Amino acid sequence: MQPNTLLDALLDEAGVSHAGLATRVNRAGRARGLTLRYEHTAVARWLKGQRPRGQVPDLICEVLAARLDRQVTLDDIGLGVPGGPVQAPGSPLSGFVDRAAALWRSDEQQRPYVVSAPALTGTPAVIPVWEWENPPEDVDVSRTGRTAVSAADIAVLVAARSHYEQMYRKAGGVATRARIVGFLTAETAPLLRGAYGDVLGRELHRAAGGLVAVAGICAYDADAHGLAQRYFHQALRLAKASGDRGLGAYVIALLVNQSLFAGEYRQAVAFAEAALRSAGRRITPALAADLTAMQAKAYAHLGDRATALACIRRAEEAAERISPGEEPAETGYVQPGLVNVQIAEALLGLGD
């Protein structure tokens, strides 16, 4: 089950407690001739991802609509009809932005069901990568909103990414995570909900994607692997909206590293291959070296000696072409020393 951060965000906006929602739902049910006896524990289960039965989702919409004095739909509360249209990477970005902002807010408030959520496995873990690599693309990411986004706003996000990355390197992910998540909630979310044209919007989504990726790294460092994975998936979606395949490949490298940590070696190989294949000429020598070195480690764990050695050779060749001044900010972590360590671990896995 995935945590229902949208419902949690609306409850917070409406100022309704878990017990308060249960009471109001029971009351609304009586008006429809239903006998309901929900308590705060039921609401806690809904927030963890359990879907309420029968007419209860509609009753929740009714209760929150009355409280907020506006229409509230099933999609708004994260309880859209199963089998109905799903807002995937090819659909409008507004739904994604709302879901992303809800996750940031829940993380900022240290909601246990978000912070302790298990990592996705199997098909749900693969789908975001498949959707990044394949059509449809975002033809137009422009948006109308109350606040006009400017190039200066985007420059602030770019500077913030660099600031929080340096903070992470000096103080670690545990100390940095609360600060970067607070920035995402207070500064990044309003900009994504603002007004911008297609060109500026792509720059905005790229800058936001870089920030969200660092938030994922911080969550990973804090051993919140399910949360880190969700941040990486968000960053990948933002990368697709930006049109920057290189940024997407960088985010996939983070997922490859996480897959190796989890022992999902075949998944690590597949993800790295997707990044190398899809990014094409947009991939930099540093990122190519990192991805192929991690592939070598995965193949070594799988017992495929010949392919592991071939990946090691490609990683060494790519590492020789690294020119720090020509690499984007995100791949600055890839230094020859890191590649050498990755290769050494692969060789160790092969018994060499």
Rank of each mutant, 00 (worst) to 15 (best):
N4K: 02
D12W: 14
A14G: 03
V16T: 08
S17I: 12
G20E: 01
L21K: 06
A22V: 13
R24C: 04
R24G: 01
A28P: 00
R32L: 15
G33Y: 12
G33R: 10
R37G: 12
Y38L: 15
V43D: 00
K48L: 09
R51T: 07
R51V: 13
P52T: 13
G54P: 01
L64F: 03
A65F: 06
R67P: 01
R67N: 05
R67Y: 05
D69C: 11
D69H: 14
T73W: 14
L74S: 12
G80D: 14
V81C: 05
G83F: 15
Q87L: 15
P89F: 12
G90A: 08
G90S: 11
S91A: 15
S94Y: 09
G95S: 09
F96S: 13
V97R: 12
A100L: 15
R105A: 11
E108P: 02
Q110P: 02
A119C: 07
A119N: 02
L120T: 07
T121M: 04
T123P: 03
T123Y: 10
P124G: 02
I127S: 02
I127C: 02
P128C: 06
W132S: 07
D138S: 13
V139H: 05
D140Q: 06
D140V: 11
R143Q: 15
T144A: 10
A148S: 10
S150P: 07
V156A: 12
V158L: 09
R161L: 10
Q166L: 14
K170I: 14
G172F: 13
A178I: 12
A178H: 04
V181T: 08
T185Q: 03
T185P: 00
T188K: 09
G194P: 03
Y196K: 08
G197V: 14
L200F: 10
L200V: 15
G201T: 08
H205R: 07
G210R: 13
L211A: 00
L211H: 00
V212W: 00
A213M: 04
A213R: 07
A219Q: 04
A222T: 08
A224D: 08
Q229K: 03
F232Y: 15
L236K: 06
S242Q: 04
D244G: 05
R245M: 08
L247Y: 02
V251K: 04
I252H: 00
A253F: 05
Q258Y: 08
S259Q: 08
F261N: 06
G263W: 06
G263D: 11
A268E: 04
E273S: 07
E273V: 05
A274M: 10
A274C: 11
R277F: 13
A279N: 08
R281A: 13
R281N: 09
I283L: 15
A286Y: 09
A288P: 01
A289M: 06
D290H: 06
A296W: 02
A296C: 10
A298K: 00
Y299D: 01
Y299N: 05
A300H: 04
A300K: 08
D304I: 14
A306M: 05
A306Q: 13
T307G: 08
R313G: 14
E317K: 12
A318Y: 02
A319L: 06
E320K: 14
E320M: 13
E320P: 04
S323Q: 11
P324K: 03
G325N: 06
G325K: 04
P328Q: 03
Q335W: 06
G337W: 05
V339K: 07
I343N: 01
D352E: 13
